[in-house]
């Protein structure tokens, strides 16, 4: 895998390290990155996107702490073997968190009652 794996939008309100972690989560959850796949080095990512290497290592460190990545001697960062299959429900739910937050905010802005929205959501999930 090379550094073009990620896209970086520096002007976004979301910090770059979060953008990278988020993309890692999606890539692993979506199967584009399989267990044992090597990730581009910090230097490669930083050089390719012209971003601060500290940002990249911070993102990798966070992903490592989450159990998405692991550090192998001699190979650098690879996707953790325990990756996708054993993701707990709670972990998967956190991926949905941003969309839910957005939904909650818009519900408040439209001044809709919560139960009406939940009913509608439940119907959508069932169909």
């Amino acid at each position: 895998m090379d550094a073009s794996l990620f896209t970086v939008q520096p002007a976004s309100p979301e910090p770059i390290y979060r953008q990278i972690v988020e993309q890692l989560r999606r890539l692993i959850a979506g199967g584009q990155l399989g267990a044992g796949d090597a990730l581009p080095s910090v230097r490669e990512v930083a050089g390719f996107h012209a971003i601060n290497p500290m940002t990249v290592s911070r993102a990798y460190g966070l992903a490592e702490a989450e159990g998405l990545l692991e550090r192998l001697r001699g190979r650098g960062m690879v996707v953790a073997a325990t990756g996708r299959n054993v993701q707990t429900q709670a972990q998967r739910l956190t991926l949905l968190e941003p969309s839910l937050l957005m939904l909650a905010r818009q519900t408040r802005e439209l001044e809709l009652p919560a139960d009406a929205v939940l009913r509608r959501l439940a119907r959508m999930l069932e169909s």
Binding site: G47, A50, M54
Partner: peptide, 13 residues
């Protein structure tokens, strides 16, 4: 962009 890359890598390495 090239300058930023140079700055970033120097800072990192």
């Amino acid at each position: 962009r090239e300058l930023l890359r140079e700055i970033a890598l120097r800072a990192g390495e």
